[in-house]
Computed example of a mutant assay.
Amino acid sequence: MSYSNATDFTNPSTFILLGIPGLEAAHVWISIPFSAIYAIVILGNFTILFIVKTEPSLHEPMYYFLCMLAVTDLLLTTSTLPKMLSIFWVNSREISFSACLTQLYFVQCFSAIESGILAAMALDRYVAICHPLRHSIILTHAVVAKIGLAVVLRSGIESLPFPFLLRQWSYCRTNIISHSFCAHMAVVKLACGDTRISSSYGLFVLFCVLGLDAIFIAISYMQILRAIFSLPTKDARFKTFWTCGSHLCAIVIFYIPTVFSSFVYRFGQNFPLHVHVLIGNMYLLLPPMLNPIIYGVKTKQVRGRLLWLITQKQSNVFS
């Protein structure tokens, strides 16, 4: 298919992903940090999964949710980054219409799952700090499994309208997507006719799914802070709050880029196009890369187990 800006079709057989518009000459160089990010994502999240599986003391709700987060990060990154790298490395820009909508669905679904898991982790922190004696009674293994299943079902269902709405539009302007993956608003902008329903549904999901998760997290932390400030000593308050440090960092690196990227796409017409694309890439790539690092550094049990594994390997090498 031609890379024409004047094609005439209802549903194109393929779309053309430009990668990072305006920076095509630097794609090979851009692929280096992106490849490093993918390697860190795979190594870091599989390490988290291995540590939790092999350490019985980590078989607790907090670490089960952490494993769910690691799996989600792996799937979210794998749904987009291999295609990005093929664009950067070998200029493989074509993606079929169905594959594009499938990728778009998975991006929306896994992003919503990540938001739901962060909300579930806030619940765990609330119960652990505000009701410590009832933590094991409230958050049993069965309850954790049901929460995880509910998050996946919710995210899968609310993401279904995205590809179905996009499939019904006519694409009579162009088949060129000025992005490195099939982002929702990047595809919506190619459609002809009145596409406000697609844009409005995207905002609905942003406010009523991610927004409700964020409100739930905020309420949980208001209760957590009340409990922390009621502790008798400054040292006790600091130690208790420190147990939330990893989760708070994960919240910041997920929600801020996600919300910022969504608003830039809709209202940031003055931003250069390559800035739009880089922001969209970062909101997908930074959380999966940083989450295992944050939890590896800040969580004592994970850090201790990781150091033990490293020293064991070193002793085996030199023995």
Rank of each mutant, 00 (worst) to 15 (best):
A183Y: 02
L190E: 02
C67L: 12
G268C: 01
Y105R: 01
P12L: 05
T140R: 04
A191R: 06
R125Q: 09
I176G: 00
Y283E: 12
S86F: 10
H274K: 03
Q269W: 13
Y63I: 07
N291R: 10
F241Y: 08
L139S: 00
Y105G: 02
R226S: 13
A145Q: 11
F15R: 03
L49W: 15
S13R: 08
I310F: 07
G211E: 00
V187F: 05
T78F: 08
Y221W: 12
L278C: 06
A70S: 08
R134P: 06
G268V: 15
I157G: 03
C100F: 10
A39W: 08
P232A: 01
T77D: 03
I117L: 06
R167W: 14
A227H: 08
S220N: 13
V277G: 02
I87N: 01
Q314A: 03
I176P: 01
S115I: 13
D213G: 11
I279D: 01
S31H: 01
H131D: 07
Y64V: 09
V151R: 03
L210P: 10
V41L: 05
G116I: 13
L101M: 12
A36I: 14
M282Q: 03
I42L: 07
I224F: 05
A119I: 09
A183E: 13
S13W: 00
L17S: 03
P161L: 08
I256N: 02
K146Y: 12
I279P: 01
R266N: 13
K313I: 15
S155P: 08
F9C: 11
D213R: 06
P232R: 10
L18D: 07
H179N: 01
A36R: 07
K234G: 06
V107C: 01
P287E: 05
E60Y: 12
G304E: 10
T258W: 00
T243G: 05
F318A: 05
Y105V: 02
G193F: 04
L149W: 12
T47L: 11
V52W: 05
F106H: 05
S315C: 02
S230W: 14
G202W: 10
I113M: 13
F207M: 04
K189A: 06
L17W: 11
